[in-house]
């Protein structure tokens, strides 16, 4: 009986791991956001190099807190930088007076809520968290 329970536990753990691995990061915007933005431009937004969509609004960039694995995954996939490189990047911009880091939110749920409420907000969550309150701009696999 114990062996069966152990086997079930291992099986369940593996399913959870597979689900976590399969959950991609998606860049999300407000439902009413109607501008075309490619991944190259998005990477510049997430690096603080661009603030304004061409023929569009100034965006409000949202970020998860440091150490969040969704955050690490986004920057690895979108801008090819690890957490240390991102820390150096923002330290350079901030402490030289060249730029301000994005507003940090505490969770994916809060990020989704803020994006749903703000016309110009850009954020990111895991694809499993997406619902009808937001629009997916880019899926990072």
């Amino acid at each position: 009986m114990k062996i069966i329970l152990f086997a079930l536990l291992v099986f369940e753990t593996q399913i959870i791991n597979i689900n976590a691995a399969q959950s991609d990061v998606v860049v999300i915007v407000n439902k009413n956001f109607n501008y075309e933005v490619n991944s190259s431009f998005l990477s510049k937004i997430f690096l603080g190099r661009e603030k304004e969509i061409p023929q569009g609004p100034i965006v409000q960039l949202l970020d998860l807190s440091e150490g969040d694995h969704i955050r690490d995954e986004l920057y690895e996939k979108l801008v090819d930088k690890n957490p240390s490189e991102m820390k150096s990047h923002w330290s350079y911009l901030m402490f030289t007076g060249k730029g301000l880091p994005p507003k940090v939110v505490s969770s994916e749920d809060e990020m989704k809520r803020m994006v749903a409420e703000s016309q110009n907000a850009i954020g990111y969550i895991s694809s499993s968290k997406v619902d009808s309150s937001v629009k997916v701009l880019l899926q990072l696999k």
Binding site: K87, S88, S91, Y92, F95, T96, G97, K98
Partner: peptide, 9 residues
């Protein structure tokens, strides 16, 4: 020059 004091960079 602008990051002269920020050793981490």
């Amino acid at each position: 020059s602008e990051q002269i004091e920020v050793g981490l960079t």
